[in-house]
């Protein structure tokens, strides 16, 4: 109540907050990250346009590991949560490739958030996998805004999408730790697409541009992708230093 003149009017009080609007999501993401690190599971947020080849890259990753180490072992190593607006198609494909996978059906939601991933973990036996891929909803805008608790962000960018996608969607690429330039087996049919031009665009939106050219169809470049994954896992802290409230 206004007590300066005794008029009885309500008082307007300014409250300084200065906090991230998505602080709640950040807390849930930190909770997820703590679980992943405690279990020594390396979580990767895989983003990209619809049709960029996210699922195909994961299928090829599983095939490559199976070829190297024998299929039964592969079944233990890779897990995935697949964000999908309306179907289980991606999770079906991933399971067929030997990946422990579940869908997160988002309905009309254009992205995954940390709470969706947390709920998804309840339906997935993820404790024993080495790598957990969160295949985000196909979208180059919305998923970039949300921390999920991942160890790294990877963006799949197919050569068929054109060379200027990084300049058109800078926030997505700014958040990327690695860009996988996919479908490079199609380059002979795309004379206007030059990897150098894509790399130049990435250098304008990423302070530490890191990219690899891969083909899930031919397997070209997939070996360096596996090496990158292994290095990421080797460098991962085993547990959080600070614990959430």
């Amino acid at each position: 109540m206004c007590d300066s003149c005794g008029c009885g009017d309500a008082e307007v009080v300014p409250v300084d907050v200065h906090d991230r609007i998505l602080a709640g999501n950040d807390r849930t993401a930190a909770h997820n990250r703590e679980h992943f690190r405690d279990r020594h599971v390396t979580a990767i947020n895989l983003m990209g346009s619809p049709g960029a080849g996210k699922t195909a890259v994961l299928e090829a990753t599983a095939r490559l590991l199976a070829g190297r180490e024998g299929k039964p072992y592969t079944h233990q190593r890779l897990g995935a949560l697949a964000g999908d607006l309306a179907t289980d198609n991606d999770a079906d494909r991933l399971r067929a490739a030997g990946i422990v996978a579940k869908s997160i059906t988002t309905g009309s939601a254009c992205h995954l958030d940390a709470a969706m991933v947390h709920r998804g973990l309840h339906d997935l036996p993820w404790h024993d996998v080495d790598y957990l891929f969160v295949e985000n909803v196909g979208n180059l805008v919305c998923p970039a805004v949300y921390d999920l608790g991942q160890e790294a962000n990877v963006v799949a960018l197919s050569v068929t999408e054109g060379v200027d996608k990084p300049l058109k969607y800078p926030v997505m690429f700014l958040k990327a730790d690695l860009v996988l330039i996919t479908k490079i087996d199609l380059l002979p049919y795309l004379p206007q697409i030059r990897i150098e031009t894509i790399a130049d665009a990435l250098a304008h939106v990423m302070p530490r541009p890191r990219y690899m050219c891969v083909s899930a169809t031919t397997g070209e470049g997939m070996g360096q992708w596996l090496t990158w994954l292994e290095q990421l896992r080797a460098a991962q802290p085993c547990c959080e230093v600070t614990h959430h409230a």
């Binding site: 009080v13 907050v17 200065h18 906090d19 609007i21 998505l22």
Partner: peptide, 9 residues
């Protein structure tokens, strides 16, 4: 993406 201030009654 910050909430800076709330003016409330």
């Amino acid at each position: 993406i910050l909430l800076d201030r709330i003016e409330m009654e």
